[in-house]
Nucleic acid binder design. Structure first.
Lengths: 288, 288
DNA sequence: CCTTATTATTGCTATATAGCAATAGTGTTT
DNA sequence: AAACACTATTGCTATATAGCAATAATAAGG
């Protein structure tokens, strides 16, 4: 089988007119260049470079061979440049498996935003929650909820905070306490990023669509509005830690709060995750 | 600087659909193929082959990269085939430096015969006797006469016999003895292969053009004609050994005979003499 | 003409590599 | 379901290689 060994060195010597200059260009030793070219000549059974000390020139055979090798080296550069560009321009298709309501409501919108930032990228989300085969299905990563079972995958924690609903005592006094998440549609709700709130109903996580007169994507504004009795709010429990503790706000539908389970991003234990996957994962982790 | 390392292995895996099959094709170990491809992926910073045990397929990046690498491998094969063919079809130019009358009269005609046997070969003989530079002038070999001075060259003995002129006693009696080679134009000469005879005149070798009524390229016929008094003959001394010893022929212009010096073929001490040079040298040695 | 600087080659040695063998995984056959 | 055959990866070791340094040759400068 033919070998590319010595080709790069030979082309460098031919172009630079000497072994030392070629070695400098290639950032290696003159002895290495000398030996690589000598080995190439041995394999081919002919002399490519005519040399006396301090003078190197291409032989007739060498000139013809150099022309062809030059094209090979250029072709390699182009191939490497193209694959490099491909990596950093995020083209191709990002394939994600993301089951469940959380993925539908939080992951999908974020990935759509991500896709908008990379016009040449296609995002393909599979909401089927079956066990996927990363190789066969060419899945870049999956979003999984709860405890993980496959130890061969790499897991990155995506989100681990429970979402809770609260209201002010005044609001409760005036409007009553909802006894079930389904009754939220009859209440005024303060909407943060999402008007689908998740509750653990009969052991399964369900999303309830809510509505209200106040919307804000600022957590503090949401907490303030809630304290002023504008409605029921739904945020990570940590956002209400203080106001619940000093009874400024009271928990609502506490029996339906989900466990503090974690959502994960999982992907194959491979050395090189495509950059599009890596960047998408980082984007999700940073923005969720 | 880009490297071709792993390209051949990667293409083989892509085409054979597995590392083991690729290893068999390349006549190397599976561990070598595995490592070479892994190193290539490391350099490029992306995965070219998606693999689980017993299953290998090209990734999206890998497919594009494979197409380009396939062209590189094909190009290398073509380049190697072409240089291989070039070697064995004796094309290109044979460049010889051959000074002096001997080269002119013996080497040149033989090289012309050689060239006739290889239609795609060009023979370029430089009759200038200056010291040539093998590298700068791209000389394949040189013909040199007498003692060699450059020990860095390889020397092959070409011919080592002195040429001598003789005549029969009858011829001498009838026509007188020429006292100087210049007088040969006034004598009848028996011409073998060449009508320019070499003599050592005033320390330098000069060729004298002769003429006569008898020509033959057969040494025995020449000797016979000389014995019958048809003229003066000029052949290697060995051809007349017997006839001179029994006085059937007598030496002529003995003071002008050259020393029994040797003609050499010399060429660079290089590992790979172009085949055309090698075959030409062998041809000269076999036929002179 | 002598000295200096730079070249290419090669002996020698520390380091990287190719192959062997062990390991884990998976498809096929019984 | 178990056994078998084949796969890819990786630890380990003998061997090949890359770089250092010595050497010889040659061009340039004083």
């Amino acid at each position: 089988m033919d070998s590319f060994e010595g080709i790069v060195e030979f082309v460098a010597v031919a172009e630079r007119g000497g072994f030392s200059a070629a070695a400098r260009q290639l950032a290696c030793s003159t002895s290495h260049v000398s030996r690589q070219v000598a080995k190439l000549e041995a394999r081919l059974g002919c002399v490519l470079l005519a040399r006396s000390t301090r003078l190197v020139s291409l032989t007739e055979s060498g000139t013809a061979y150099y022309q062809q090798c030059k094209e090979l080296v250029t072709g390699l550069q182009q191939a490497n440049e193209q694959i490099n560009q491909q990596q950093f321009h995020l083209n191709g298709t990002l394939r994600v498996s993301a089951a469940g309501g959380f993925a539908e409501q939080f992951v999908a919108p974020l990935l759509m935003k991500f896709a908008q930032q990379h016009p040449e990228l296609t995002v393909n989300i599979d909401f089927d929650s079956r066990m996927v085969n990363f190789v066969e299905d060419s899945i870049d990563f999956a979003v999984r909820y709860g405890e993980l079972t496959d130890s061969s995958l790499i897991a990155r924690k995506l989100v681990s905070r429970p979402m809770v609903a609260v209201a002010s005592p005044d609001y409760i006094q005036q409007n009553g306490t909802p006894q079930h998440p389904n009754q939220l549609k009859n209440h005024s709700c303060i909407i943060s990023n999402n008007d689908h709130w998740l509750f653990n109903i009969d052991g399964t996580q369900q999303s309830i669509k809510v509505s209200g007169r106040w919307r804000s994507n600022n957590s503090n504004a949401v907490v303030n509005a809630c304290q002023h009795g504008l409605g029921i709010a739904y945020l990570p429990k940590s956002s209400f830690e203080n106001t619940i503790n000093n009874n400024q706000l009271v928990p609502v539908l506490e029996a339906f709060w989900g466990k503090a389970a974690t959502s994960w991003i999982v992907y194959q234990n491979r050395q090189f995750l495509p950059l599009r996957a890596k960047m998408a994962i980082d984007y999700l982790i940073d923005n969720i």
